[in-house]
Design a protein around this nucleic acid. Structure first.
Length: 582
RNA sequence: GCGCCCGUAGCUCAGUCGGAUAGAGCACCAGAUUCCUAAUCUGGGGGUCAGAGGUUCGAAUCCUCUCGGGCGCGCCA
């Protein structure tokens, strides 16, 4: 609806040669905003104030000239100049009625923009290591990423959702060794479990379930002979020695067989967990596949060609400081092993090479240290720094009964995402996770999220949706119908202030979706839906919809059906259900 | 020590590109239902936007510094 006003202002300016020069590099759309106060009309433009300096005229003088040049529009009832030079627009009822019609005509498509070809966006999120079940922190990244993906699609961008599976490297070896030791344990071979190993109960379950055919039993002595002591300072050495010992005793193939089954089992569980949570990925991109396809070598070759690698102390370095990083980074260690950073830049290089124009990474806040160097890697390979956008998601703290709950994957004492979902339900979980700005710490209060009461905003919004459905059921019970065509015809009867307020809020929806998408900020949509539900509940309490006069009844039903439609669309983007009944 | 994020009502948080009198929920107080679901609604009190400077027609918003909190700073992943 905003574009109506923006176009009027634009046209007026084009009729004012003395101003259009000053306005040349001003985005008119950006000067138009919703008013906070109804006494300022529906929209206001600060264009006159913005032009005051370049045009060297007073804001009010410019505003007067623009208003003069506006001309008549059926969408506008009144235009006023106010305050230091705001131009306030009062839109006509007809403009709002047309918007209501647009809502019901477009249905699920209302608020969505036409598909664009570019930029093609690769959205990477969650990407938790497949070493254990997802915990509540991952849930936030999952909800946030899924919702941002929905928002970007709603405004027309092609979005590819991707999960990067870190299925290579030392952590995988430790996982393999952990499973191996639990398998031995189940077969009566007891070996001191490493502190750095994964000790969650799920490791025993995997050990019991994997196929170990062809893997010969060994004795406890054969396993522990000559290993370093399992002490604090030896923790790394001890676990690495166990990995090496497993490979000695069972061969690379034997170790690989166990490790691979373990990671596949965990990865599948993560995938099921996310699917159940309504979080879908287009691709599960394996780090192993990156290595097998020699993509890390390809990326390093590109850097080499561009003179972006050097040798020092037997290692190969990338001069990240040239791109604003605080220190240069090693890509190939002295021992010939490529670093995690090497595969990371190779992965991002690969994303760009696959044809995605814009890369968005959603990472836990603890990974912010990587942002500069990965971006540096892309830049060094000839891409734009802006091609990579990183959104950090701050930590989640769970509270129960006012008590803060601790979590840690390694100790096995975590709270899993699955437990959380079972407790609060998908809807409340999805909603709570995106209620706050991503760069704000999140206090997740289980008592509130589980309460089926007015404390809980997700139910408040869903209830508004269910109430409309309930009204329509009542209508049927009373053997009345809803004549939508007549409703559209009679919208002029809706002259109550609460009706005007509801129509105004409804018309904001496309702007809110765009704002939330552009800022990767789902909380705008959350707050909007709360406002909308509030307007609806207030209206519901103040006025009956099922009245005797068919004209007024159909008009009101038209309005509340539009409300139901917008709530359903908004909740859909959040991944929250819109129930017909509660 | 250096870097990133944050600091807004008693609590949890919104606040768009700098815009008009800084908002919401919870909590607290007072009310509303013969009527479509009370999982609802109405009204009220509650603010040094951490602090100090600066930029300008205008700053919670931009810049600098200080204070406070979180996270990160490896030839780990």
């Amino acid at each position: 609806m905003k574009h109506i006003v923006a176009e009027l202002v634009q046209t007026a300016l084009s009729r004012l040669p003395e101003l259009s020069e000053a306005a040349a590099d001003l985005a008119i759309e950006g000067t138009v905003e919703r008013t906070r106060d109804a006494s300022h009309g529906d929209f206001a433009s600060n264009v006159a104030m913005r032009l005051a300096k370049p045009a060297r005229r007073s804001p009010r003088d410019i505003a007067a000239a623009i208003v003069e040049a506006l001309g008549d529009s059926p969408d506008v009832d009144k235009v006023e100049i106010a305050g230091p030079g705001f131009i306030n627009f009062y839109l006509s009822p007809a403009a709002f009625h047309a918007e209501l019609e647009a809502i019901l005509t477009a249905g699920e498509r209302y608020g969505r923009q036409a598909s664009k070809e570019h930029p093609r966006i690769l959205l990477e999120f969650v990407s938790a290591n497949p070493t254990g079940p997802l915990h509540v922190g991952h849930g936030r990244g999952a909800s946030y990423g899924a919702t941002v993906g929905n928002l970007l699609e709603a405004v027309g961008y092609p979005v590819h959702r991707e999960y990067y599976v870190n299925d290579a490297g030392r952590q995988m070896d430790i996982l393999g060794a952990s499973v191996w030791l639990r398998w031995l344990e189940a077969n009566g071979v007891d070996v001191d479990f490493p502190q750095g190993g994964y000790r969650g109960a799920y490791i025993r379950e995997i050990a019991a379930a994997i196929d170990t055919s062809g893997i010969e039993p060994v004795t406890a002595d054969a396993v522990s002979d000559g290993l370093p002591d399992n002490t604090d300072e030896n923790a790394d050495a001890y676990v690495d020695a166990l990995v090496a010992r497993c490979k000695e005793l069972h061969g690379e193939d034997g170790f690989d067989k166990m490790r691979q089954q373990a990671l596949e089992s965990i990865r599948d569980e993560i995938r099921d967990d996310l699917e159940d949570f309504g979080v879908h990925f287009d691709e599960w991109f394996s780090e192993q596949s990156l290595t097998k396809a020699k993509r890390v070598d390809d990326a390093l070759a590109v850097l080499e060609e561009r003179g972006m690698l050097y040798k020092k102390d037997g290692a190969t370095w990338f001069p990240a400081t040239q791109f604003g990083d605080e220190k240069d980074r090693v890509v190939v260690r002295e021992n010939g092993v490529k670093t995690y950073f090497a595969s990371d830049i190779a992965y991002h290089f690969d994303k760009r090479e696959r044809g995605y124009d814009h890369l968005i990474d959603i990472l836990g806040a603890d990974h912010h240290g990587y942002v500069t160097r990965v971006r540096a890697g892309l830049e060094a390979m000839g891409y734009e720094a802006d091609d990579l956008e990183v959104k950090l998601v701050q930590f989640v703290t769970l509270y129960r009964g006012g008590e803060r709950m601790q979590m840690s994957t390694r100790s096995g004492q975590f709270d899993t995402l699955r437990q959380l979902r079972n407790e609060v339900g998908n809807d409340a979980a999805r909603f709570y996770y995106v209620m706050r700005s991503n760069d704000q710490h999140l206090d997740f209060d289980l008592d509130i999220a589980t309460s089926q009461s007015n404390d809980n905003p997700v139910y408040y919004i869903q209830y508004a949706h269910a109430r409309v459905a309930s009204v329509l059921r009542q209508l049927e019970e009373k053997s009345l119908g809803f004549d939508a065509a007549n409703g559209r015809e009679q919208l002029g009867l809706l002259d109550e202030p609460l009706e005007k307020a509801l129509m105004t809020t409804l018309s904001r929806y496309p702007e809110v979706v765009e704002l939330a998408a552009n800022n990767r900020a789902p909380q705008h949509l959350v707050h909007y839906l709360r406002d909308l539900a509030n307007d609806f509940h207030t209206y519901y309490n103040a006025h009956a919809f099922i009245v005797d006069e068919a004209a007024l009844r159909d008009a009101r039903l038209y309005l509340i059906c539009a409300t139901r439609n917008v709530i359903a669309n908004g909740l859909g983007i959040l991944g929250v259900s819109a129930p017909e009944k509660m």
